[in-house]
Design a protein around this nucleic acid. Structure first.
Lengths: 259, 259
DNA sequence: CGTCGTGTTGAACTCAGTCAAGCCAGGTGG
DNA sequence: CCACCTGGCTTGACTGAGTTCAACACGACG
């Protein structure tokens, strides 16, 4: 789709993959990277609104998003759902496969997207003797925990407007890491329904909040993009005085993949 | 204090520690367990309301709660805080030390409690060649992620009453794993303020919710204990038709330490 | 040209927050 | 032994942020 980050291209060799640096495989040498290609089971196209897998499903592979946007979510019996994570190119899902545990949450395409599926067993064997890869995987898990816990605090303690501001701020920061040109003006393929499901709000109220942010000239939406007009105001709302990445964790300055 | 699970006793050798089976060190052989004792830097008493460490602090050790209750939290500039996790005996905190990353959140005693501190560097070296221990640590990280994400959904989508019910249900399930006698009637050293900070509510409203749960004869509080009177009603509120552990993850039936 | 998905707007309503007062138990000190 | 204080719990009255329901607008797409 038009929202593809690297429109048109399809995954080739992992060794020369332009995204590899920001994935969990970023620490490997290029020649090691070549071996990854052999571990790859499949390159899978996933249309928007389709599920890659569902919560509880047994996973055969670990998936890395190559192109497009997706999200992880849990569905409730009553039909509502909670979006847990927006997936951007380079993000990996299904690490629980490495422990032979079923998927904790479902994954769905937000746009049409492309996933690289790496065979669970072969990846496990491959990572076993490679300390840096193992560490990177562990690091990713801990980092996700930190992000989740920050979000927990957001949901528990912040108003709708603050949540939206924080959500956009974090998303922009992540996009910029993939493409520096995204700063200040980035694609936003989410429907308001998705924002609502991510932030524990109703679509109706998300609409009102966006309206308010626009009438206050803090941001502008056009097409499926968002433009930041008043960054200081946005950052203040988001609760981070700086420009809105991790003050709390102060995490490593090294590459830190996967949301 | 009186809430101690194993009142009076102090940590001896890790090899014979009665708690070891439910910690991340549970998979080790007894003789391996002996070596753990050598890795232990310190047995630390922590009084109620005191911090073991604070968010952002560099950690020298990985801590396992031996006795008493504690909690992890993040504090906001405006004075409010979000409780992220209730720590029970056997729970481990500070795994980020293994990656030389600073603490993501602060840890505070709820009752007087005792922590076993294991030296970061020696533990890392010890775990390096032991696949089962490494896996157990990774498993713990993923499990915490699952728990956090379930809680995220709770905060986003459930009413105050449902949140309290889910909170108590989960806590009881964890207590029962330590001590089967806790089923139906378990210690509850938390102030309503703590419940409020954990669930994104105000203490005033927590009080009202507890009152309602009691007038509906769903539970009873006396002293610092909670007694479940109407389990089906509680489980229904908590959103899990069964008796309230993990339906969503369907996680491994193996031991699953750390919350 | 109708329909579907999405966003917008208004009005009524409700859950939970805020503020403030009072209560109770436990501890401390005269 | 009583007076007082403190921390936590309770209750009531009021407020407000966000939901619910419903109608309508608008563009894409058959």
């Amino acid at each position: 789709m038009s929202e593809r980050t690297i429109a048109g291209s399809r995954p080739g060799s992992c060794g020369t993959c332009p995204l590899r640096a920001i994935t969990i495989y970023g620490g490997l040498d290029p020649q090691d990277g070549e071996e990854l290609t052999a571990i790859r089971r499949e390159v899978q196209d996933l249309p928007a609104k389709a599920d890659l897998f569902q919560a509880g499903q047994k996973l055969e592979s670990v998936a890395t998003l190559f192109d497009g946007w997706a999200f992880r979510y849990t569905a409730f019996p009553d039909g509502s759902r909670q979006i847990l994570q927006i997936l951007l190119p380079g993000d990996t899902v299904g690490l629980s496969a490495l422990l032979d545990e079923p998927a904790q949450a479902s994954v769905q395409g937000l746009t049409d997207c492309i996933f690289c599926l790496l065979d669970r067993d072969r990846l496990r064997a491959y990572a076993q003797p490679r300390r840096s890869l193992r560490q990177q995987i562990f690091r990713t898990a801990l980092h996700r925990q930190a992000v989740n816990e920050r979000r927990l605090a957001q949901l528990g303690r912040r108003t709708a407007k603050q949540r939206v501001a924080a959500f956009l701020t974090e998303l922009e920061a992540r996009l910029v890491r993939i493409d520096p040109d995204a700063a200040g003006n980035f694609p936003f393929p989410l429907r308001q329904m998705h924002v609502a499901d991510a932030l524990g709000l109703t679509p109706v109220h998300v609409s009102r909040v966006f309206r308010e942010l626009q009438t206050q000239a803090i941001l502008r939406r056009s097409g499926r993009r968002i433009e930041v007009l008043d960054r200081p105001a946005l950052a203040r709302l988001a609760g981070v005085p700086g420009d809105g990445d991790d003050t709390s964790t102060g995490a490593g300055r090294q590459q830190m993949p996967c949301q």
